[in-house]
Design a protein around this nucleic acid. Structure first.
Lengths: 187, 187
DNA sequence: ATCATATGAGACATATATGTCTCATATGAA
DNA sequence: TTCATATGAGACATATATGTCTCATATGAT
């Protein structure tokens, strides 16, 4: 604290945002390319992250923390179904984080994997509760409901990325498709 | 023709299948790892493919050809809607090819990209025709319908991969979810 | 059996990404 | 201004993936 010449917050942020964007677009992206995309020297990237593995771990940690926080906030709702809907919207907004976590399965720390599993577990409980509320057909395989939920988030995020919809529109489309597609009467 | 000691078809096939599996699981997979996974020497892989780029191009070409052929076969149906359904099922069966084409956007030959675009165009026409038949709500953004269609294919494929459903079951789930989610009354 | 070709193993060279260091400069606090 | 720290540029070393070659062996056709 006090007088220290702190790291410019923009530098670290720029690296992290560029890394999310680059690695989501192409997981083989070079550290040099990420640095360049962040408008930062290659050495600077190495000062902040020991190496590729370290960077990826940091991204995973951040994505996990951000999605967890957003989900927690969104979970405050009048019903489990509404919570599910609000979380879906929140995940679409954090689409790059969500997608990164879904893709980057390689070599994550135990703690990180545990946290991910814990979050996932909480979410599944919520889904179960929403199912009991009648949000979707309880006879459907749980795995299918999860798959559809996650993939619709990604689909919606890509709509937003491609400027084909606003976040609100995409979230609305995704939710409507989710409940309509998994409705009990639709079987 | 004639007396030549032909390449063992199994060698090439093994390499290609291993490459699809490995690269889908982790795009950064090494050529050495692919060769090993195929149960083949590293040198042998290089005899068949000049390098990584060449291999990826070959995979893309094959995936394109296989999906095109399967789609053409499936398109023979009693209605555009049925064709759409049969194509969806076919794509789930070719899930690894379909996914590979969706992911591997980097550096494909012009011819390959053109062919992909052409296929895509034909498919969009079909979707439009199915929409006119009432397969789904015509008021929905075309891009959203495409996104949902493609993502449900991937979701279904992952169900099959994870042994959580047979191809038939997964295809049924995907189609039901598709038409239910995009139904006109569901808006 | 004989021969042509495919293959595997490994040596070797090269290319590319990664990691480390130095030094000049920029920046913000005191 | 003065000072401590962050940064950029680039040199340099290392690690890893890739590409090429040789040779012994396996395989299938004749």
């Amino acid at each position: 604290m006090s007088h220290m010449n702190t790291i410019r917050p923009t530098t670290l942020e720029a690296i992290i945002e560029a890394a999310f964007a680059c690695l989501n677009a192409d997981p083989t992206t070079t550290l040099a390319e990420i640095a360049q995309s962040a408008g930062v020297g290659r050495a600077t990237l190495h000062r902040h992250f020991k190496g590729r593995a370290d960077l990826v771990q940091a991204l995973a940690d951040r994505a996990l923390a951000e999605t967890a926080q957003a989900a927690e906030r969104a979970a405050a709702a009048t019903s489990y179904t509404q919570a599910l809907r609000r979380i879906m919207r929140a995940m679409i907004e954090l689409g790059d984080r969500h997608w990164f976590l879904a893709q980057e399965t390689t070599a994550r720390s135990d703690r990180s994997a545990e946290e991910h599993a814990r979050q996932r577990g909480e979410f599944l409980d919520l889904m179960l509760s929403a199912a009991k509320e009648g949000a979707f057909d309880q006879a459907l395989p749980q795995a299918w409901v999860e798959q559809v939920y996650d993939h619709l988030i990604h689909a919606a995020w890509e709509m937003v990325r491609g400027k084909e919809a606003t976040v609100n529109q995409a979230a609305e489309l995704a939710w409507t498709t989710f409940v309509g597609g998994l409705r009990q009467t639709s079987r």
